[in-house]
Amino acid sequence: MNARPPWTRNGSTDPGGVRGERTALGAFVAGILVTATLVLALDTSFTIGMQLMEPTRLAGPSTLTLAHVATVLPVVTMSTSHAEGGAQPMAEGSITFAAKGEAGAYITGSVSAADVRFHVVGEVSNAMYFPVVQWRFGGDMDPSGVARFNSSGLLANLQVNVIAPLVVSISDGSTGSATFRLVYQ
């Protein structure tokens, strides 16, 4: 006895039969779905823009002074360590600088390294380190670190924000160091 091909119906040997029906039905349903999708999409056009300035022409040898104003690092209470599960606790702080330079000139701020680590005073074990994961510029600087001296040649609020994950239970005394650099554009 011959085995009946799986696509046949009532002994029909037409392989295009059932599959053909399914293909046609599938195409029809897909057509409706595509149509419905298309009519429910809405496009809105908008503009993007950027002003690229002439490079700053310094009048002559120009000084640039930078002063540390304040550091506000958080007081962190480690009630939950990372090992206990849940969201990893993060520490976020802010360091503020002021600068004096040529009126109207653009400067770019940067931080010396992205992997500065805080550590507990007196500890040398790597287990007690936690790395800075992100530096963010704020205050007078845009997110790229660009700022422009005002007409008096002052920038009073150059903010460097630092975010670090707390990967070990550390109480007090965590310190770290980094260098903030200003460069005329």
């Binding site: 908008f46 823009g49 660009v146």
Partner: peptide, 12 residues
């Protein structure tokens, strides 16, 4: 509003 980028200095 549209999207704009901060003004930047040419040459970089």
């Amino acid at each position: 509003q549209g999207l704009s980028f901060p003004p930047a200095s040419q040459g970089l």
